[in-house]
């Protein structure tokens, strides 16, 4: 295998110039995304630079506590970001989202790292951190889409919810159509991605592995495994987020609480 080509710093800085095209589009159509995009680009660059430094040490020590702490921090940030992006009431959602985040990461890591890859040391930083990170990153994105559809659906169609609640005398039956729509919207993009994977998209992990010197056969096996982990992790996380949130968003009469959103929506 050929050694991977490094990217020099100047070329990497030059790569940012491509962002002028979408930003010009935002300005032309007055899409209020210019500031958010600029902040996101700066944050991404700073965060990844810091991560590169942290990971050097984390990989070097490869300690169970340090690695676990790293994943816990990732979960906390994912939960905080999700609640903020959806403009939800922080106090109401922090517990259900934390429980669903921890549970889904635990199930996926235990199954794939312990049972499928059969690692002797399940907390090995080279596996534990990137796989948890990929599951969490995807779970956050798809949760935002799915849960927004669910909560917005309930709030804007509360007449239908109350109609079903009283006539069916069952909250589970009354929320079912809203949950279906939330799951469909949250997971549909992932299904679409898997459908065309390899045809119109070469996934990042596989590309990274091949660039890093792995054989395509090994890279593809890992990619299939990671897609299964992502799909299962995202689905479990979304389902649990809905189930646990339902314990907080209704009052003792099963009426929808008024303060689901943080008031800035």
């Amino acid at each position: 295998m050929k050694e991977i080509m490094d990217i020099d710093l100047l070329s990497l800085l030059l790569a940012f110039s491509i962002m002028l095209i979408p930003i010009a589009g935002f300005i032309y159509y007055r899409v209020p995304l210019v500031k958010d995009t600029a902040i996101a680009l700066v944050r991404m660059s700073l965060q990844l630079s810091l991560v590169a430094v942290y990971l050097e040490y984390i990989f070097k020590f490869n300690s169970i506590w340090l690695n676990t702490l790293w994943v816990v921090v990732m979960i906390l940030i994912a939960v905080y970001t999700s609640i903020n992006r959806m403009r939800l009431n922080f106090r109401m959602f922090v517990i259900p989202f934390l429980i669903s985040g921890f549970t889904s990461v635990f199930i996926i890591d235990a199954f794939f790292l312990g049972y499928i890859i059969k690692l002797d040391y399940i907390f090995d930083a080279r596996y534990f951190i990137p796989i948890s990170g990929m599951v969490l990153g995807n779970a956050m994105n798809h949760n935002i889409v799915g849960l927004t559809a669910y909560f917005d659906g309930l709030v804007s169609n509360r007449e239908l919810y109350y109609y079903l609640l009283v006539n069916n005398n069952n909250r589970t039956a009354a929320t079912a159509p809203f949950i279906r729509e939330g799951l469909r919207r949250g997971l549909n993009p992932l299904v679409a991605t898997m459908t065309v994977m390899g045809l119109i998209s070469l996934p990042g992990m596989m590309t990274g592995q091949i660039l890093g010197g792995s054989s395509p056969a090994v890279a593809i096996k890992y990619q299939i495994m990671i897609m299964l982990a992502i799909f299962a992790g995202v689905s479990i996380n979304l389902l649990l987020s809905v189930v646990f949130s339902n314990r907080f968003i209704f009052d003792s009469y099963d009426r929808l609480r008024k303060n689901i959103f943080n008031g800035k929506k």
């Binding site: 007449e159 239908l160 109350y162 109609y163 609640l165 009283v166 005398n169 003792s252």
Partner: peptide, 29 residues
């Protein structure tokens, strides 16, 4: 609440329920 709602049929004022057909409404109920 559950015991009492078991006895009640509720027909709201706003019939613009986000449902497409009577058949779909039937399934939901």
């Amino acid at each position: 609440t559950k015991t009492i709602r078991r006895q009640i049929t509720w027909i709201p004022q706003n019939i613009n329920l986000s449902v497409d057909t009577a058949a779909e409404l039937c399934t939901l109920l």
